[in-house]
Nucleic acid binder design. Structure first.
Lengths: 142, 142
DNA sequence: CTTGAACCTCTAGCTGCTAGAGGATTTATA
DNA sequence: TATAAATCCTCTAGCAGCTAGAGGTTCAAG
């Protein structure tokens, strides 16, 4: 029987986060001690590890919900899990492409800054005038 | 005199977002029409463009606040603006490195999935067992 | 039996918007 | 000048995915 603190340490998840996962139904309600404290077993430890690992790979909580559901039904075809992973891969690739464009632009800004007064600062100038940008970077928060 | 809708179209910013920027003090309170509607001038248009462009380059609203402040004081040294941009560049590079590791792992997962039952799904297996990962990817939400 | 660490619930906060309700104003046309 | 459509207003609440803190209880060691 594991306390929430132990689970926290074993998975590198904050205690509050574990309770949050329970609240949104991602983790099942665990058993309780006589005094009302949460007590976990190994299955729940595995589940939390799965969740955390998926989060580390960038999957959304919704995607993880689906993946967990699939994982609970061993006889279903795995196309769906595959599709979710492919979607995630695509997203990662899109984000990388975007960051690459940003990096180019930022490098250029920083590189051109000669360190005088802000009046002549290339960084600020570029920010003021989009047309100075050589690369495309048109979506916010992608 | 520009209405908020015009500003919205010219900068590609949602009307609510413009009001939000005003609320958090990023945009100044504009003048008003007799009936109480917001009316903007070109200086404010420029300011909003600056904000938007900075957002597109990934700067946080706090960073933008600093950049705007620097931009308003042409005689200050521009080290600070430079530092902010360098910080941003560093962040972008870190995120890229992280995404690269994720991509590798996701590719491997997807590649190895042979399309059978979920019981044998490599995607789910890898998620279950971190030790199967070849690359490091230890921070969440970076 | 006492102490202190870990637990409990509950509420509110973070970033950066976005959406909708319910109503007022502006503008174009008839 | 009247009216209708488009735009504007304020206010509140919601999204993801946690995180922090208040104020109080339980547990395990000594």
């Amino acid at each position: 029987m594991l306390t929430i603190g132990t689970l926290s340490k074993k998975t590198g998840t904050k205690v509050q986060t574990i309770r949050y996962y329970e609240q949104i139904g991602l983790m099942p309600e665990p058993g309780r001690s006589e005094g009302g404290q949460r007590r976990y077993d190994n299955a729940q430890l595995d589940r939390l590890s799965f969740i955390r690992h998926s989060r580390q790979l960038g999957f959304s909580l919704d995607a993880i919900r689906e993946l967990l559901d699939l994982s609970d039904h061993p006889n279903r075809p795995c196309d769906e899990a595959d599709a979710i992973a492919r979607r995630q891969l695509k997203q990662v690739e899109q984000r990388m492409a975007r960051l690459k464009a940003l990096r180019t632009e930022l490098k250029r800004m920083v590189h051109e800054c000669s360190g005088g007064r802000t009046a002549d600062c290339r960084v600020l100038e570029v920010l003021r005038d989009h047309s100075e940008c050589l690369t495309e970077h048109d979506e916010i928060g992608a």
